[in-house]
């Protein structure tokens, strides 16, 4: 039996909205540690790793490990039927072929349940080694989303270059070119607005903007985003979910021929 109750049910809707454009079908792994997902997009260029710890839920019970294969798009459609302030409970039997989502309105006057059929999904899991990255940038998530969107008007790829002076996002295209440089700055009163650059050595890598724009769909989940890069390694774009876990996206770099 798997049962998980989340007072802030809207959190799961935001998570689904940040994954469904990248991956169609995926397995949610339920265990005593929590609720997790690892999935690659169909072209194997990007990977999502999402983890919600069991202690972040208001109630969490998972008697045995369970893998729930779902269409992320269909799950997102169901979660759209949840009120913004509803409490969400997910339930699944150990050998069952469906998962139930129960939505309770804050005043308990409306209770609904939606059942989603599960699917058998063969998913390829990759081992992601712990890495000390050459550079890590923490910045406002909305600022990162804006830069990716703005640069997409000019080009298809972005060169992200971290130096001690800041992080520079550059693109070129048929109509011209664009650069945005963000400098580190602290803000004691508004920590969500600060930019922190932790650099062991300068690093510059090129990525497809299309994927970064998909990652930015996670912006409503966190005020800050953490971008970690090392030479010739996939970038990690991580959004921390307060008191619960994170959603991290990995994107393979473009390789110069």
């Amino acid at each position: 039996m798997f049962e998980a109750r989340l007072t802030q049910g809207v959190l799961l809707r935001k998570l689904l909205d940040s994954m469904k454009d990248l991956v169609q079908d995926a397995n949610f792994d339920c265990s005593s540690t929590g609720f997790a997902l690892q999935a690659m997009d169909s072209s194997h260029v990007s990977l999502i790793h999402m983890q919600l710890r069991s202690d972040g839920f208001d109630h969490f019970r998972c008697d045995r490990n369970l893998s729930m294969g779902v269409s992320l798009n269909n799950m997102a459609k169901i979660l759209k039927c949840m009120g913004n302030d509803d409490v969400l409970t997910m339930k699944a039997e150990d050998q069952g072929d469906s998962v139930t989502f129960m939505f309770e309105s804050a005043n308990q006057e409306r209770i609904s349940d939606f059942e989603l059929k599960l699917m058998d999904i063969d998913s390829e899991q990759l081992g992601i080694p712990d890495t000390d990255y050459s550079a890590t940038v923490k910045m406002p998530s909305a600022e990162f989303a804006r830069i990716c969107k703005d640069l997409s008007t000019i080009g298809d790829t972005v060169l992200i270059a971290v130096t001690k002076d800041g992080v520079r996002f550059s693109t070129t295209g048929d109509i011209g070119s664009a650069n945005v440089t963000v400098r580190s700055h602290s803000n004691v009163d508004k920590p969500e607005e600060q930019v922190v650059i932790d650099m062991q050595e300068p690093v510059a890598l090129t990525f497809a903007l299309r994927y970064l724009n998909s990652f930015a769909k996670a912006t409503p989940l966190s005020n800050q985003v953490m971008i970690s890069m090392s030479k010739e390694l996939p970038v990690v774009v991580q959004y921390r979910i307060e008191d619960m876990g994170h959603i991290s996206y990995y994107l393979a770099p473009k390789i110069e021929d």
């Binding site: 690659m40 194997h44 390829e124 990759l126 081992g127 990995y250 770099p253 390789i255 021929d257």
Partner: peptide
């Protein structure tokens, strides 16, 4: 010219 890398080139199977 650049080509898009694939994740399997960087990460191995579990």
């Amino acid at each position: 010219k650049s080509t898009q890398g694939r994740l399997e080139s960087f990460f191995g199977p579990v």
